[in-house]
């Protein structure tokens, strides 16, 4: 009896050793000697049918504001927006947040070229966007030397990028409502606040003008939200909003979304 078990175990072991050696040899052949350069063909994309009518799909893009930087709970304005929306509708809401901290408008243009991002835009019912903050403030660098010609130049590239972003979104998805959340001035309490506010207002104005050229792209102002008591709504870094600041933005967007949904019906 014992003898038979041991023979079986030994046989299994030899078999396994042989298999493993084949595997090992295969690795060597595959990785070291190199292969007959088989081209990697892209697998055909099998489209998952998207029940667009039963559920609301939110696609969010942009920078740290959409990420929620500064909110201790990490919800960001999207978290508060979702809370509000869940009160208003019984439909399931899904969210894909593709925002990247520190993203500038030209980086977003690049991101929108990725196939998966494009698929998300296609399936979205609502698209949220924050962009421009990093183009304008460049992490606070620009604010220390306010050079008007430099500012003009960066605004020009920014506006050209925004145009590209809007057209890309519209060409992929004609029906989704796009909410582009505008810029506020985090430096409104500091010196030269007049100058910085003028610049931010100018950017907001020009962006809103661009948005007006497209159907169902709403430029949501936030400048006024932070105009008074800016420090109550800012995080420690004096740049990103805190929880209270995000809540303000979230509620503002939420109010708009119900309105546009009722308009659809």
């Amino acid at each position: 009896m014992k003898k038979r078990i041991i023979t079986i175990i030994t046989a299994c072991s030899i078999l396994s050793a042989a298999l493993c050696l084949i595997g090992l040899g295969w690795v060597m052949k595959d990785q070291l000697i190199g292969t007959k350069n088989t081209k990697v063909t892209t697998q055909p994309a099998q489209e998952v049918p998207h029940p667009a009518h039963q559920q609301i799909h939110i696609a969010a893009f942009g920078d740290s504001l959409t990420r929620g930087t500064g909110d201790p709970e990490g919800k960001g304005y999207i978290g508060y927006l979702m809370q509000e929306l869940k009160k208003k509708t019984k439909k399931p809401i899904t969210l894909s947040n593709s925002a990247i901290k520190g993203q500038t408008s030209s980086q977003l243009v690049k991101q929108l070229a990725e196939p998966e991002i494009r698929r998300q835009i296609k399936n979205a019912t609502i698209i949220l966007l924050t962009i421009g903050g990093n183009d304008l403030f460049q992490g606070g660098k620009a604010i220390s030397h306010l050079d008007p010609t430099f500012m003009k130049r960066s605004e020009k590239t920014y506006l050209a990028n925004v145009k590209k972003i809007y057209s890309t979104i519209r060409s992929l998805n004609q029906s989704a409502t796009v909410f582009h959340i505008g810029l506020y001035n985090p430096f409104i309490d500091m010196e030269k606040s007049k100058l910085t506010s003028t610049i931010v207002r100018q950017w907001n104005f020009d962006s809103a003008n661009t948005a007006a050229d497209y159907k169902k792209i709403v430029y949501v102002p936030t400048f006024d939200l932070f105009e008074l008591n800016v420090n109550d709504y800012l995080f420690n870094d004096k740049f990103h909003p805190n929880a209270a600041g995000y809540k303000l933005i979230g509620e503002r967007v939420a109010a708009l979304i119900t309105f546009s949904e009722e308009g659809k019906r």
Binding site: A17, C20, L21, L24, W26, N37
Partner: peptide, 21 residues
């Protein structure tokens, strides 16, 4: 440049060969 497709079973066999080694 050297990337190529292989079936999953081959991939697993290769990895277990390395594990054994």
């Amino acid at each position: 440049t050297g990337v190529h497709l292989i079936p999953h079973w081959e991939y697993i066999l290769m990895e277990f060969g390395l594990v054994w080694f």
